[in-house]
């Protein structure tokens, strides 16, 4: 029987699960966060298992690693590993030449420098403030009365970005409302918002070093407008990954699960 290894990334906004078998990723899922992290993990794993007939229960998984802010709340995980290590390993699994990651999740931003084997050489995290995180984009797109995807596409249409100076989510919100009220082109304001977050990432990444290849992981990696602004401020190309960037943490956890399992055996 094929042995399966799983990673479960319980983030602040979503739960992600990745199951790997003999031929790489066999199942994956992204589900909205439940109040109880354990429940989020169950739902995410159940979803990811749907494409694997051999797996009837998460108990059939040979080794499970939990990660993300709710990592220690998954009682059926064999161990938990920080999301910093998991994002590094997940990106390395996709592309062994990745040296720098910017991970923008629901409530934090991280800069990670990778060693030659996918280990973490150095990392920085933002503070407890939500500026520049997924929460920040949620608030911004709400002001524009748009879905995140729409907001991202809007920013790509900008002719001249209007700088948004405030880095605090609350102040940025009132600044953007004022700019909209003054009838500035929404696409230019949206591009300004992307630029403000990109600059924040620049500051973080400068502390770990911006060594190519650079990639972006986390839910906000799907924001094309942000990726474009990041490439501009970092002056490097952001390398796309072969899998959904939102599941990189869970993927890294699954890769660790396979490694740890062989050690445990």
């Amino acid at each position: 029987m094929v042995r399966y290894f799983a990673g479960c990334d319980i983030g602040s906004t979503t739960g992600k699960a990745v199951i790997i078998g003999e031929n790489g990723i066999a199942g994956q899922s992204i589900v909205p966060r439940e109040i109880d992290p354990e429940e989020t993990a169950r739902v995410a794993l159940s979803e990811a298992m749907k494409t694997i007939d051999e797996l009837k229960s998460y108990k059939d998984i040979a080794y499970l690693v939990g990660t993300g802010y709710g990592r220690s709340e998954i009682p059926f995980a064999h161990e938990n590993i920080s999301e910093i290590s998991c994002h590094a390993m997940g990106a390395y699994y996709c592309d062994t030449s990745i040296k720098t990651i910017v991970d923008i999740g629901g409530q934090d931003v991280k800069g990670i420098a990778l060693g030659d084997d996918g280990s973490v050489k150095e990392f920085v995290m933002n503070d407890k403030c939500a500026a520049g995180t997924g929460r920040f984009f949620e608030a911004m797109s709400r002001i524009f009365r748009m879905e995140l995807q729409e907001f991202s596409e809007l920013s790509l249409k900008a002719k001249r970005a209007i700088p948004v100076t405030a880095q605090c989510s609350v102040f940025a919100e009132s600044e953007v409302i004022s700019l909209l009220a003054r009838k500035n082109p929404p696409e230019d304001i949206a591009a300004g918002v992307q630029g403000a977050v990109a600059k924040r990432c620049f500051v973080l990444l400068k502390r770990v070093g911006i060594t190519p290849k650079v990639t972006i992981t986390g839910g906000c990696a799907k924001n094309r407008g942000l990726v474009k602004e990041l490439e501009k401020v970092l002056r490097v190309e952001i390398a796309p990954l072969s899998v959904d960037p939102q599941i990189i943490g869970a993927l890294g956890a699954a890769v660790y699960a396979r490694k740890r399992s062989s050690v445990a055996v």
């Binding site: 802010y69 590993i81 290590s85 280990s119 990392f123 995290m125 503070d127 407890k128």
Partner: peptide
Amino acid sequence: EREYHQSGEGQLRTRVQAFLESMG
């Protein structure tokens, strides 16, 4: 970096765990 009073416990845990992991 921290404030005098205890705050951001979850982030502190993550940072320390990642530090230990980075040391192998």
